[in-house]
């Protein structure tokens, strides 16, 4: 039937077109920000402290703030997340109520929007625990946010370790924990690392939760008890208050480059996993 032929050709065109639109959107966003932001980037922009609320100067303190927040939140969330994953995959009974509860919790935590985390972090860490607007409050809030990402990726990585590895190790007389520590974790490490890298990316980009918990201070944060402004919060403030569009582009550029790099790292460690596990 020639009619369906033409219809199928049109459908194929439509499918190709939609894929092209997706690629176009990505290239437009990344390309435009790189194009406009690149002009702003120099050593002064990265190394100098912001002046006059960010209208002048660089963004050094926000880079330090971002580093502080992401590293600290990862340091808190990684042991918890990986620990939960090991517990779920290696120790918990698969059909037990507890395992179901933990999985449900991870799903729910992953679905909660960042603004709710921000509200919670504000009322619990900032006010109730009296940590104030500080890197501690921000990192602890971020840690809860990225915890499901780390757990889920680590779970998948542990699950992908062949059963024979464990059986051989146990048969050689190793205990369960020895088997996990010496056999399972090393085999699953690329996946676990990928999860942490993804969590890092999420923590760098997070704005709403950080805004409500770490504050917007532009001072250079020295200790984790200091308030701090992250790069993403800085971008928001610059753009919303129309302080300096050039500096906003520069900040957006740095965030995008950082995330592209993180995405590359995640892909690399993922490919390590598939070589290893295959």
């Amino acid at each position: 039937m020639p009619g369906t032929r033409i219809g199928e050709k049109a459908l194929t065109c439509l499918l190709y077109l939609s894929a092209l639109i997706i690629i176009g959107i990505l290239l437009a966003i990344v390309g435009y920000i790189v194009y406009k932001g690149l002009a702003m980037i120099n050593l002064d922009f990265i190394m100098q402290a912001p002046r006059r609320a960010g209208k002048e100067g660089g963004i050094s303190s926000t880079i330090v703030g971002t580093l502080y927040l992401t590293v600290l939140s990862l340091a808190i969330a990684a042991p918890l997340g990986v620990g939960t994953a090991i517990h779920l995959e290696e120790y918990a009974q698969k059909e037990s109520y507890f395992a179901y509860l933990v999985t449900l919790t991870a799903e729910t935590l992953a679905a909660i929007p960042s603004i709710i985390y921000g509200l919670f972090g504000f009322v619990f860490f900032v006010i109730y625990l009296k940590l104030g607007w500080s890197i501690w409050s921000g990192s602890l809030t971020l840690a809860i946010m990225v915890w499901p990402t780390i757990t889920r990726t680590a779970q998948e990585a542990i699950l992908s370790v062949p059963r024979e590895y464990r059986e051989n190790s146990l048969a050689l007389g190793a205990s369960k924990w020895q088997t996990i520590r010496k056999i399972v974790i090393p085999a699953a490490i690329p996946g676990i690392v990928t999860g942490m890298i993804l969590a890092l990316g999420r923590a760098i980009g997070e704005t709403a939760a950080v805004l409500l918990t770490a504050g917007t201070s532009l001072g250079m944060p020295l200790s984790p008890a200091d308030p701090a402004r992250s790069m993403s919060v800085h971008l928001y403030m610059l753009a919303m208050e129309g302080l300096s569009m050039e500096r906003a582009f520069g900040t957006a550029f740095l965030i995008i480059i950082l995330l592209l790099f993180i995405n590359y790292l995640a892909n690399r460690s993922m490919s390590l996993l598939s070589h290893n596990g295959g």
């Binding site: 920000i33 980009g205 704005t207 971008l235 928001y236 753009a239």
Partner: peptide, 9 residues
């Protein structure tokens, strides 16, 4: 992976 604040910007 692009953060929401960059989309907003």
């Amino acid at each position: 992976g692009i953060p929401s604040v960059v989309y907003g910007f």
